[in-house]
């Protein structure tokens, strides 16, 4: 019984193995981002795009391996709330940048 419980806990709350997998991937992604910036091997625009992609991938890795997000029915409402938040933040940041950029151009402040 104790074993069954442990095995189940391992599945639903993460195991040492899954934490270590997530950790190794996260370390590689972080190192890649710092490495790209420190090496100056790409153009500035290319580097910005690359580290932004690395950050998004790392956020997903953390969500899956550390916060144990998945597509199971138990998680449906968690994932829905998260999706709504991501959408809100995207509108918030995208909208702010769009409006402030337009304002700067129309006011000729740049």
């Amino acid at each position: 019984m104790a074993d069954a419980h442990t095995a189940h806990s391992g599945e639903s709350h993460g195991s040492v193995g899954s934490y270590l997998t997530g950790f190794v991937i996260a370390v590689l992604l972080t190192a890649a981002a710092f490495g790209l910036v420190m090496a100056h091997s790409f153009s500035p625009a290319g580097t910005i795009a690359a580290i932004a992609v690395l950050a998004v991938v790392q956020v997903v890795v953390h969500l899956v391996f550390f916060l144990h997000m998945n597509g199971s029915s138990a998680q449906r409402w968690n994932v829905m709330a998260f999706a709504f938040t991501v959408m809100s933040v995207a509108i918030l940041i995208g909208g702010t940048l769009f409006i402030m950029h337009d304002t700067a151009i129309n006011m000729m402040s740049r």
């Binding site: 391992g10 195991s15 040492v16 934490y19 996260a26 953390h62 550390f66």
Partner: peptide, 9 residues
């Protein structure tokens, strides 16, 4: 982050 994860396990 992983040390806390180990704590949860």
């Amino acid at each position: 982050s992983i040390t806390y994860g180990f704590g949860m396990i």
